[in-house]
Design a protein around this nucleic acid. Structure first.
Length: 481
RNA sequence: GUCCCCAUCGUCUAGUGGCCCAGGACGCUGGCCUCUCACGCCGGUAACAGGGGUUCAAAUCCCCUUGGGGACGCCA
């Protein structure tokens, strides 16, 4: 069995010292989708392991037979894969019940646990009574010294210390200590023979050699209980770090009410995974004033040292800003490969990646997400005959005079020896010179005629990408609208 | 109810006793650039929850108050 005690707290200053074996884990319960809070926890654990050249374990905690589903497990795996948070080992907790029970038996043998025949109702009554009397609701330990053996309906409880304090040095919150009077003899094995969460977690973390447990804030109160189990087992607990939760704009715990919670919702919104990870990382962690982190930088710079200790509000605007940044950074070919699905989602034709790779550069600075890019690409992918025209734009810019000029330009464009950006610029320069006009005078009519609306990428490059045939077809159509 | 945790601009945060009458980023906003829309660039707005200490010196340390949150399961 791995010795959990042999895990020194990594010191940032020793960043480049010989690798100590750091083992982290992300342990979601498959009862829903991978939500942003879980995803952020995964990011932290992934980065911590990679930073120290350690191991990142994914453990599906599916011991709740009622609520765990294969669909949820798949959703979590998909979410992590999308974010490119690759795990080194994958475990399903439900398959390890025998192992958990072995440890419970050890505790029974060593006298650190005992059988209890109190029913859930009885325990419930004890708790209520304590509560009204202003005490901590807890099991009163009445079976503690009865020396009961196994039997139907009986559970195994931990014989927890009655006095003293249990404390630990949290990586993000510092020393946390709790009076053992606050804790009760928690159930280790249910009446149906299945181990409980706290027991399973400890056994798994111990046997998997987990050295750093970075998890959500909501687990701080479980930590003392788990430490008690480690002690009963005669083992030293690993290092804990509890990160604060993520809140909605109203400062309440993030929930469906606030809109998208699942990371896949963000994928569908057209957010790039790089932006999502960057955003999640900065939510609760900082490295000076740095906002943008490449994957390499994240790994090199991340330590638990700079984790924040207060809850953070999820800010969609900032995520969008980061995404717009990554939209500009990503190679056109990559975006072109992702775009067809988003075009299809809008009922637009799935254009060829080769063609899209030429369209994308014109749109990168104009779209914050892939969804926006797909929308902005409509006139690039729609057949000429199906291009919709904005009525008020037509009325405003396609005046009789403008149509006359459009026809004249169409003739000139048809006669051009070459139809690329350079020759287009040259053509318009001479045409406008001869007419005594500024480009400004023809730009909007031209734009409306070619794109159907009043805003678009630069006209020369747009025409270049569209090609002579389509430009001419649209000009002809516009003149007769 | 009891215990635990948290508290810097609207938001994410920097700040680890003097460099801070508090810096960066998002947002909002003024301007520049310009064939439109964007991008970009320059500028502006805005915070140490309150009160006591400790100290020559506190956003930084301590205490209290207030306000948030979490936990108290044979759920995870």
């Amino acid at each position: 069995m791995p010795d959990a005690a042999a895990s020194p707290h990594p010191k940032p200053k020793d960043k480049d010292s010989p690798p100590m074996s750091v083992v982290t884990r992300f342990a979601p319960s498959p009862t829903g989708f991978l939500h942003v809070g879980g995803a952020r926890t995964a990011v932290f654990n992934f980065l911590l392991a990679r930073h120290f050249g350690g191991t990142f374990i994914l453990r599906i905690e599916d011991t709740d037979q009622e609520r765990s589903t294969p669909e949820a497990t798949k959703a979590i795996l998909d979410g992590l894969t999308w974010l490119d948070l690759s795990w080194d080992q994958l475990y399903y907790q439900s398959k390890r019940a025998d192992l958990h029970n072995e440890y419970i038996d050890k505790l029974l043998e060593s006298g650190h646990a005992y059988w209890c025949e109190c029913t859930p109702d009885e325990v419930q009554a004890m708790r209520e009574k304590a509560q009204v009397e202003g005490r901590k609701p807890k099991y009163d330990g009445r079976c503690r010294e009865r020396g009961l053996g196994p039997g139907p309906g009986r559970v195994v409880r931990l014989k927890a210390p009655l006095s003293g304090t249990t404390s630990f040095n949290d990586l993000v919150k510092g020393v946390i200590s709790v009076n053992n009077e606050e804790l009760d003899d928690l159930v280790l094995r249910r009446a149906d023979g299945w181990p409980t969460y706290n027991m399973a977690v400890v056994v798994d973390d111990v046997t998997m050699g987990v050295t750093h447990i970075v998890r959500g804030d909501d687990h701080v109160s479980n930590t003392p209980k788990q430490i008690l189990i480690y002690r009963a087992l005669g083992l030293n607990p690993p290092v804990f770090g509890h990160v604060p939760m993520i809140l909605g704009p109203d400062k309440k715990k993030l929930s469906k009410r606030h809109g998208a919670m699942s990371v896949t919702d963000y994928r569908d919104m057209g957010i790039l995974p790089e932006a999502m990870v960057n955003y999640l990382l900065r939510l609760g962690w900082a490295h000076g004033d740095k906002e943008i982190f490449s994957r390499e930088e994240m790994i090199a710079l991340f330590t638990t040292e700079n984790l924040g200790s207060s809850a953070a509000v999820f800010d969609l605007d900032k995520l969008l800003w980061l995404d717009s940044h990554y939209m500009k950074q990503t190679r056109p070919e990559e975006l072109a490969a992702l775009l067809p699905d988003f075009l299809a989602a809008k009922g637009l034709p799935r254009a060829e990646p080769g063609y899209l790779a030429r369209v994308v550069p014109l749109l990168q600075a104009r779209a914050k997400t892939l969804v926006e890019m797909a929308a902005a690409a409509d006139f690039f992918v729609l057949p000429d005959a199906e291009l919709p025209y904005d009525g008020s734009a037509v009325a405003k810019f396609l005046t009789p005079e403008a149509r006359t000029r459009l026809s004249a330009m169409a003739e000139g464009l048809a006669a051009l020896p070459r139809f690329d950006q350079v020759s287009l610029e040259a053509y318009f320069a001479t045409y406008l010179e001869a007419e005594g006009l500024a480009f400004k005078a023809v730009a909007q009519p031209l734009r409306v005629a070619i794109t159907g609306r009043t805003f678009s990428p630069g006209l020369h490059e747009t025409m270049d990408v569209l090609g002579r045939e389509r430009v001419l077809a649209r000009l002809a159509r516009a003149v007769n609208l």
